[in-house]
Every structure is written in structure tokens, then in C-alpha cells.
Simulated assay, not measured.
Amino acid sequence: MKEIITEINGISIYKNFVENLPYNPKLKPLLSGKRKAGILSEVIFWKQVRAGKFHNIDFDRQRIIGNYIVDFYVKNLGLVIEIDGWSHDTKEIYDEVRQKYLESLGLKVFRIKDFDVKNNLAIVMKDLEDFIIKHYKY
């Protein structure tokens, strides 16, 4: 039987832990620099989700998966959250390859625009709730 990890709007959300994710230790030195860079949209989002503030769900910031560092990761759901800034406008193919790789590991990817985090945060958080409900309610 699947384990319920939280409820969102009265809907049970079930655990979807993905085991044995690949990890490239050579990327570890990059983590603190990325965290210290303080990208505004990431800091704003982190303040909304850190320490279980978002439906008591545990988020990791700057997590290594394979040869990538993802913006946010929810272990109990196998969920990657990526915030796309202006630099992603020229990296569509890279982002597509990266997303297909992450999905091939059994992960789900929720993408958010940097602009929306800064200007429509309530909508972003509602969209994240809806995404989690859609993919993890069973």
C-alpha cells in the first residue's frame, strides 16, 4: 500500500520515492556557488517551500541528479522543480534533453518561469499544487 505524505485541498498525496538516482560527485563543488549566487526567483521560491512551509513537503535546493544540478527536488515525490530564467530562452534543446533524461529516471519535472515567480507567485504556488495533485493523488 502506498504511503500518504500530505494532503492538498483535502486530496491525499502519495509517496513516489525514486531510488538509486545517479550522482556525479564532480558537480559537488558547484553547489555552494549556485546557492550563494542568490538568484532572486530561486530565493523567493525557496522562502515559500523551505522547512515544510508548503503542505509539509520537504524540498531540497540545488540537488545533483546524474550530470545535472536541478533547482529544487522533492525526494518523497520524485519531483524536480526548475525555474527558467532568461538564459533558458536560448537553451530549448538543452532543456528538452535534460528533461527527457530526468523523466527517463522516473522523475516528474515542473517548470516555472522566473518572471512568474517574481510577479505571479500565488499563481505559481497554485499551479504547483495542481501539478502535484494531478501526478501524485493515486
Rank of each mutant, 00 (worst) to 15 (best):
D116S: 09
S12T: 03
F45Q: 00
E42R: 12
Y136K: 06
R98N: 10
K34A: 09
K53I: 11
L102R: 02
R98E: 10
L27I: 12
L105N: 06
F17T: 13
L79G: 00
D60V: 08
K26C: 09
K75R: 15
K15T: 07
L40S: 10
Y68R: 07
K134G: 01
Y23W: 12
V70G: 04
A37C: 05
G78T: 06
S32R: 14
E42G: 04
I81K: 04
K75I: 04
K47I: 02
D84C: 06
E42P: 06
N119A: 06
V97E: 14
F110G: 00
F72S: 03
G85P: 05
F17M: 09
S41F: 14
T90K: 14
K134F: 11
A37N: 15
I8C: 04
L105D: 08
L128F: 04
K47E: 15
Y94M: 10
I123A: 07
P22I: 04
G78L: 07
L77D: 01
Y23I: 09
N16L: 02
R111Y: 10
K2C: 02
L107S: 03
R111T: 09
I13E: 00
E7H: 06
G66R: 02
N16F: 01
D114P: 03
I4G: 02
N16G: 03
N76G: 10
L79T: 00
K118D: 05
I83L: 10
I112G: 00
D71E: 12
N24S: 13
I39F: 14
N119V: 06
H135P: 03
R111D: 03
K28D: 08
F17A: 07
S41M: 11
L102Y: 01
K15V: 02
D71F: 06
E103V: 04
K26P: 01
D84G: 06
F115C: 02
D58G: 05
L21I: 12
N119M: 08
